[in-house]
Design a protein around this nucleic acid. Sequence first.
DNA 1: TGAAATGTTGGGGCG
DNA 2: ACGCCCCAACATTTC
Length: 468
Amino acid sequence: MKTHIHWFRNDLRLADNPALSEAARAGAKVVCVYILSPEAPWAMGGASKAWLHASLSALAKELSDRGVKLFCGIGDPVRLLQKISEKVKASAVYWNRSYEPYGIELGNKVKTTLRDKGIECHSFSGNLLLEPWQLKNGSGEPYRVFTPYWKAAKKIYVELEPPLRRPSLESYAGELPGFGAVEALKLLTGHPWEKKMLQYWEPGENGAKKRLTKLTESFLKAYPTQRDLPELEGTSCLSPHLHFGEISPKQILSAIGLKGAAESFIRQVAWREFGHSLLYYFPETTSEPLNPQFKNFSWKADSKALEKWKKGMTGYPIVDAGMRELWETGWMHNRVRMIAASFLVKDLLVHWREGAAWFWETLVDADLANNTLGWQWVAGCGADAAPFFRIFNPMLQGKKFDPDGNYVRTWLPELSKLPNKAIHEPWTLSAEELRACGVELGKTYPKPMLDHGMARDRALEHYQALKS
DNA sequence: TGAAATGTTGGGGCG
DNA sequence: ACGCCCCAACATTTC
């Protein structure tokens, strides 16, 4: 009987896992491994590590219910996969592809190294609806604008094969020296924050399925109109599950279809696809602007301002509420991400890379493709980017998308007694009025760290300087 | 998946 | 009845 290795990467699920299904075909024994490579660039942030720990634990349990072990190890995946292959006398290694620069490089190295030793390597499309190279524009170039990408993608989405069922697995009975249980990866620091943050989530395939069920059963219908209101549970919260591959985009598409409200949701899934395609073709955009004009932009190195932003102490309630939600839950509502990001990049003129780095550290759904696309989009230097002069006004955005201030009150309890009309601009009240609400600006909540009107004019000047 | 400035229109109050 | 002004509501343009 043959022995195969399934190399788990960001595909931490059993259902609709093409590489795993193929590895298990014809009753082959499957050795399931997960390898953490510490020297990888864009090493995981704290939130991601905590999530990964919980997700791998869930996966290990699912596997062990089927009599299968999950072997976890730390080190160079190329070397370790070779070692394991020799030890278990595997004839082939299977995995689902990554589209990040380092992930691609790793896949290629594993392929060349193992094939030299006579071990087959098979990589699969498991984490995207479409491979980046499947979709090019009329002139054979990758799309740089979302709408035409979406139009072309939609036509192909309707023809996709249905997702795969969970395969039945034959266990490998032996041991693997140097490999252990999930704990061996030392992903947790033991800080109480990790436990607190994870209370908001259920990482793993089952948790992902619950989120999908909630989407289909309760809020898909209202999604197009309510997804922009951060006080509601109007969004799917599937992003971390998707990032770690606890659910595949194909499973989502197959569950909700592409008609009516579902189309507006799948459109968001397509943004993820678009981001991965961009990262595949423009890998340098993780640190360099896609639009080369922005290489000369004069960002401000202002560590004090950056610190206030990170802590949610800017004095602009909608921004601060978002940053506090992020710190508390490892997640932030998409609308608020745009507002907070615009504030950092345009009001504070801090480099988008700083914001991207903070999101990378703190988001449970931190994803190189999405993070890069999002920040470059906000900064105006990326694909389909918001023009630089599109500057969010935190007060107007607050009034528009959090009209009753419920979102702000949730994350900034120190402002909870403010009346609706002042919740997004506390400084418009007199000191006495504020005192009546238990607020003293500069003490219980910061004064605005700078005037938005001034910041807006300043940002526009910087943009003008760039053009000339 | 902006916001502000500027332009246009049309209803109503009023002399 | 008419012109004038005000201004809200909406549209367009500009940044």
